[in-house]
Amino acid sequence: MHEFALMQTVLKLVEEKAQAHGLVRVTRVKLVVGKMTMALPAALELAFDALGRGTVAEGATLEIEEREVRLACPACGLEFSPELPHLGCPRCGETAPRLVQGRELYLDYFEGEDAG
């Protein structure tokens, strides 16, 4: 549900940086979204289409790279994908593993064309 707020930020960043680079049309926008953020790709796409109208990114392709949740055990060193709700280490039972992947939420890059 917070995908619209996140996409507003994406489009603001794209507008600013496209202008700074003299780009008049953006053709591709690439996001990285960790599954722990609970931002849904389908809702992000809907927000991109709705909010992108009339902006430099109208009609651009949105690429979303999803990242699985990965945890690392501080006790035995095992890196694993948890099966929710169990976040404990499946090998040694350590209860507080460190999150190494899954909270990503960033604009990676975009591609565009200049006026020429």
Binding site: L6, T9, V10, L13, V14, K17, A18, H21, L23, L105, Y106, L107, D108, Y109, F110, E111, G112, E113, D114
Partner: peptide, 13 residues
């Protein structure tokens, strides 16, 4: 042209 941004969407918040 490809523009790398790599900026967290939660940064402003």
């Amino acid at each position: 042209m490809k523009v790398f941004v790599v900026e967290d969407l939660r940064a402003a918040n």
